[in-house]
């Protein structure tokens, strides 16, 4: 998917989700005060480049952890969110022959660290005031690091790629200051991989994926 087509989805999908949510929920744009909330999160990611990650790391998914800040602007449900998370796994270098993966026993360390800047809308449900659904979308700056044994500094290294993401989820306020949230995100980072390694062999270029995250929120 190109950045342009992904961006088009960025505008359409949140709108559709918002429409769906409007009917059961009271989406009244009541004036609310500016709020600030910090959060920590953990969860899992399933990478779009499934064959590549599975070939090197043994699986195409893994755990993530991170954190961020969410600022409500006091304009209805509008908020901005800045967060980051990290995926880190170790596998082995490989050779691909007729789609068979032959491990070579040389350790590879892969780290994926996105920074996500999002804008979104959170909804209020009159009958469930402690449950706050939200949708968001934004830009992702994805840092990719890959290091291997027996490699030179020029063979190892890191790069940063840009993409977009969509997020949907809901927060449950346990207390006024403490909450838990569950959310799902979809990220695309096109043309980040595929120039070398097994990703070239599998013609996989997108470093994005789908995440499921559990958040602990502190703040109003």
């Amino acid at each position: 998917m190109s950045v342009r087509s992904a961006a088009r989805r960025l505008t359409i999908v949140p709108a559709a989700i918002a429409l769906l949510l409007l009917s059961p929920f009271d989406a009244s744009a009541q004036v609310t005060p500016v709020s600030i909330q910090g959060y920590g999160m953990f969860g899992g990611i399933s990478f779009t480049a499934a064959e590549s990650f599975e070939a090197i790391l043994g699986e195409s998914s893994g755990r993530i952890f991170g954190g961020g800040v969410r600022i409500g602007l006091g304009l209805g449900g509008l908020f901005f969110d800045g967060g980051a998370w990290r995926f880190h796994a170790t596998g082995e270098r490989a050779f691909i022959f007729n789609n068979e993966v032959i491990g070579l026993g040389i350790p590879v360390d892969v780290k994926v660290t996105p920074i996500e800047i999002s804008a979104g809308w959170q909804f209020r449900i009159r009958k469930l005031p402690k449950l706050i659904p939200y949708v968001a979308g934004g830009l992702t700056s994805m840092r990719y690091e890959e290091t291997s044994d027996f490699s030179t500094p020029t063979e190892d290294g890191h790069d940063t790629f840009n993409g977009i993401h969509l997020i949907g989820g809901a927060e449950y306020k346990i207390t006024r200051w403490l909450g838990v949230a569950g959310e799902a995100s979809w990220t695309t980072v096109p043309d980040a991989i595929g120039e070398g390694g097994v990703s070239k062999a599998f013609s996989e270029t997108d470093l994005g994926g789908t995440t499921i995250r559990l958040k602990i929120t502190i703040g109003q």
Binding site: R93, F95, S148, G197, S199
Partner: peptide, 9 residues
Amino acid sequence: TLRGLGLAR
């Protein structure tokens, strides 16, 4: 050849 392929490198 012995080093083979990484994920993207």
